[in-house]
Design a protein around this nucleic acid. Structure first.
Lengths: 153, 153
DNA sequence: CGTAATTAGATTGTGCGCAATTGAATTGCG
DNA sequence: CGCAATTCAATTGCGCACAATCTAATTACG
């Protein structure tokens, strides 16, 4: 593990930096890949992630959506309003606890899933790797993320 | 490629979605981890990435920085202006080709590297994995990114 | 030369992403 | 009951990120 070569520290530094660059760039690459595919659906990438969460299970509160996606209300509130304006979701206060806003899919929003499913195929092609490989990458990234989250309390 | 099992497609869909979520979340996790560490230096995370590139090699043009980081001038121009206002870099037109703007570190900017090096140690701890593991993650993420970039022409 | 095409940056407009603040609703505790 | 603390969402302000557009400088070509 320890090296005597004079450049050992530089190598580690570069590795950290390269890991940053890699994640940073990969996130943008995903964004750029999705963008043209989502444009016909009238969705941005973060909006698509919200819709994915709703297609999986409808009726989440803003808070739960925020926890799923790691976003706070400052990001979600305007985003959800745009989805509402697009007629894809409805926002209504929970009568039991009026602090909470429940997000539900409209018929149009639910119907969009069919088109969205076609996006998967294109993305799957773009990713262009085996299921096993994708699982491995996913798991190592999740592990990395968990460690980062834990390190920040 | 075609399957008869009813849930096979759902599994693939989830995998794609999970990979998206993972990358998306990991990028934010990095951002959140760096933010408090960079705040004493007066840098944001993207600004830090620009400084990393300059510490590695000073005197890049805006174009080269954009290629290294995958950012366009619409993002870099205001970012570099803020770094200039902070007194960390200087922007000057290349006399040979006045279309180009060369970014150089000021003394203050170069001096910041010492403090930034301490950030590495903290990040290294936060990442909390072996060099081999980090290399493996980095490489698989880079490979994924390359495929995405290639898929989008 | 001189005009067209190319290249480099800057600007504009939209949409995240997050910290900090605000305000309304609910809960807890005496 | 009554008041303080808590919870949830919305708002505000700042900084990316990118497409589209614009301006200025350089290069290519006749």
């Amino acid at each position: 593990m320890q090296k005597n070569a004079p450049k050992a520290k530089d190598v580690e530094i570069r590795l950290d930096a390269q890991l940053c660059f890699a994640i940073y760039g990969a996130a943008h690459a995903f964004n750029r890949t999705y963008k043209p595919l989502l444009e016909p659906l009238g969705l941005t990438y973060p909006q698509y992630l919200v819709m994915l969460a709703l297609w999986e299970e409808d009726g989440h509160t803003v808070k739960v959506l925020g926890e799923k996606l790691g976003l706070d209300s400052g990001t979600l509130s305007p985003l959800l309003k745009r989805l509402e304006q697009s007629g894809l979701v409805a926002r209504q206060r929970d009568p039991q606890d009026e602090r909470q806003v429940v997000i539900t899919l409209t018929e149009k929003g639910a119907g969009l899933k069919a088109q969205a499913d076609e996006v998967y195929a294109a993305i799957g092609q773009a990713i262009g790797c085996s299921v096993e490989e994708a699982v491995a990458v996913r798991d190592s990234i999740i592990a990395l993320k968990e460690r980062l989250n834990k390190a920040g309390e």
